[in-house]
Design a protein around this nucleic acid. Structure first.
Lengths: 349, 349
DNA sequence: TTGAAAGCGCTAACAT
DNA sequence: ATGTTAGCGCTTTCAA
């Protein structure tokens, strides 16, 4: 018992063959008498036997391990995702999660996916662009099953992977309409440098809502100036910088939609530094609905995503596609919800 | 090439035996002629061969996988840790990281560690209490090598595991002395319900500094009322609640030390809700130095931990102990640093 | 310097 | 209903 014991020890203790033990372990208990089964179960319990996942992996070519590729786990929205994915994988499936930070670097992404396969992990949830290039096609051919999260381009492009995302167009529209409902006509959408599908979609939703309200002329998209924005501090800084941009505008917006909560929180801090009151002078609405929303002053109105539900769907999908590789491609869009707090009010004057 | 290729394919392509290929792969290239070596290397490159980690795991009993056990990755301070650990494990060692959220539940902790071993992962970095009980002793006997992070009790108790932590006594003292330096004499230490070693140490440092300044009579420890506090939103809420507590005090402190940034940020938000100005009315200092510090208004003074350095030390230690199991126990305490921002000023009046 | 071969612990096909 | 066996891909000892 000093070293962990094997199926052979169990078989010996129970006076049966290892095949019988294996059958029991793999849900084929019906193929033996109740008595045999009881004996094996007793031996397992008594020895504290736990099958070696490592051996199962080599034998079956499938590890009970799921990958999660994120730009950086330091970003709280990926933290929320990681928790939800871990729960969803562990709870019904008994899988554990390998987490990889790839900093949006295609080389690191490839290396992570390659390593997953090498460890026998066949399923992965991917944020970011990894599922784009031809390297990914190769990985897929070698048996990697990916679901992309919140990056719709992928499915459209490659036709390789299932896709789960929030309906970002709806998110952009929802936020903007909320502002319009308060009477705002000069609204800015705050974004980070660099285009992603979900950002483009948020912008599209924003524009659609502006058009519908007939205020397109007085609305605009503002892009923060900075670089690598997968992390946390960078996004906050970017939000601050955007507050400066807004102040320098000849005609200031009375409300802003930020593409995420970190940016929104930085923006709010930047406004306050400059003596601008939220929501009296400018209303602000974020997206993600992280804990940050309860931490700002005033508390932040935000767009909430059903992260837990989406995570379960992604994990379920991976498991299912592992069993049925020829499943048709799925693209699931989930509706966002508005969480109203205190950072939105009527326009000044 | 459709299925990933094996060492046998490489051997065949190079016209050598698999033993030779394996030798090359395992740094024993000196045992062959330069010519043989070149042929094997060419075959590897040409076939795009990558060794199966899964097979290596079974054969050697060691997976190139490291575990990280945290209460919840949702908490940004664990996010920072996870990133640093992943980097440290991947960069020199080529290891990947299995992340487990265990919510401070001993049963889940045990199950996670058990699974690590089963997957062949032999090293784990542990937050929280997992390394305490007797179940852990058993795991250690079966070959699990753990380093506990920021939870000194462990090493002291069990004598099983190496331990790396910030010097929390110093952190508490540093924060308190900073406040004393501004002339504060009525200082509160803000903590969450439940005792941990690092909390106790922070309190000890706080008390020591108060004693040294001769202000013990007018200083106190305030404990937030709430429950499960491993996550994010709970800590913020607890901070808010503490702001209420402080307001109800007959004699209010003029400064507060919070045991972490989340609590501090919630506290600052709670003060502001009640019209109390930071730092004019009350100075606040946090610990962790997360991105939150740049997000509050005013920006938060905080105590910074050398998380990256500590993560490298933990990973290095695990690797080393895996090679030399009889290494004497290590307990490394790292000094914290004060990051001065704008939430601390002189006491009012 | 190179090759052959014995397993690591398990699954599943096949035999009894 | 139960047992036997051939590997999964690799490392490493031993032999040549």
């Amino acid at each position: 018992m000093s070293e962990s014991c094997t199926i052979a020890d169990v078989a010996r203790a129970a006076g049966v063959s290892i095949g019988t033990v294996s059958h029991l372990l793999n849900g084929r208990a019906n193929r033996m008498t109740a008595q045999t089964r009881a004996r094996v179960e007793a031996a397992i319990a008594q020895l504290g036997y736990r099958p070696s996942r490592a051996a199962q992996t080599l034998k079956t070519g499938r590890a009970s391990l799921i990958g999660l590729l994120v730009p950086s786990i330091t970003n709280p929205s990926y933290g929320a995702l990681a928790r939800a994915v871990d729960d969803a994988a562990h709870d019904p499936y008994g899988y554990r999660m390998i987490l990889g930070n790839t900093y949006r670097d295609p080389e690191q992404e490839r290396s992570f996916l390659e390593d997953l396969l090498s460890h026998g992990a066949r399923g992965v949830i991917v944020m970011s662009s990894a599922t784009g290039g031809s390297a990914f096609a190769e990985l897929a051919r070698r048996g990697l099953v990916a679901v992309s999260y919140d990056t719709r381009r992928i499915a459209a492009n490659a036709g390789f992977v299932d896709h789960v995302a929030v309906d970002s167009v709806a998110a952009g529209r929802l936020a903007t309409e909320h502002l319009c409902g308060f009477g705002h006509t000069r609204i800015a959408l705050l974004t980070a440098p660099g285009r992603t599908i979900s950002r483009d979609d948020k912008i599209a939703g924003f524009r659609a809502a502006c058009d519908a309200a007939g205020i397109t002329q007085s609305c605009q998209v503002l892009e923060g100036r900075g670089q690598s924005c997968h992390g946390d501090a960078e996004l906050v800084e970017l939000g601050r910088e955007l507050a400066g941009q807004v102040m320098r505008l000849a005609v200031r917006p009375t409300a802003a939609v930020a593409i995420n909560d970190m940016l929104a929180a930085g923006f709010m801090a930047g406004l306050r530094d400059r003596g601008i009151d939220v929501p009296a002078d400018i209303s602000v609405i974020g997206m993600d609905d992280l804990f940050l929303g309860t931490l700002t002053v005033p508390q932040m109105t935000s767009i909430q995503y059903p992260v837990q539900q989406m995570s379960r769907v992604m994990v379920d999908r991976i498991m299912r596609r592992l069993a049925e590789p020829d499943l048709p491609l799925m693209e699931a869009l989930y509706p966002p919800t508005l969480i109203s707090r205190a950072s939105v009010g009527p326009p000044p004057g």
